[in-house]
């Protein structure tokens, strides 16, 4: 989720939290203590690096960005997730399921609801 948030450009910690919350439609909320532990690990693994720092309203903002390796990792993960999702949808379609929108109920072609 953090790599995905940084895919659109450098972001600071709170920006990442807001992006993750938005993209998960409010299902995932990253807490500060958890977030910076994860960012530290990503930086140490060479997937993320510090872009720049700025002070806004006397508050330090440290911006992070993806490294090329981080971009590759994110792309690989995205492709893998996409392939899994396609496979799942294909299997559901093969069994006669009409796949609804996320959160909505699917239904069978024979009229039964899921």
């Amino acid at each position: 989720m953090i790599l995905s948030a940084l895919a659109q450009g450098p972001a600071h910690g709170y920006g990442i939290v807001k992006d993750v919350e938005l993209s998960s439609e409010g299902r995932i909320t990253l807490r500060a203590g958890t977030l910076y532990g994860a960012i530290d690990r990503l930086v140490a693994a060479g997937l993320v690096e510090i872009d720049h720092e700025e002070v806004v309203d006397s508050r330090l903002r440290r911006y992070y960005r993806l490294t090329p390796e981080g971009g590759n990792r994110l792309a690989a993960e995205a492709h893998r997730a996409e392939a899994q999702a396609r496979s799942a949808l294909a299997r559901l379609n093969a069994r006669g399921w009409v796949v609804g929108t996320p959160g909505g109920a699917g239904s069978r072609l024979d009229g039964a609801t899921a």
Binding site: H12, G13, Y14, V17, A32, L35, Y36, V56, R59, L60
Partner: peptide
């Protein structure tokens, strides 16, 4: 510390 405090206050 400074980064985390800024984050918490902003949030």
């Amino acid at each position: 510390q400074a980064e985390l405090l800024g984050h918490l206050v902003e949030a």
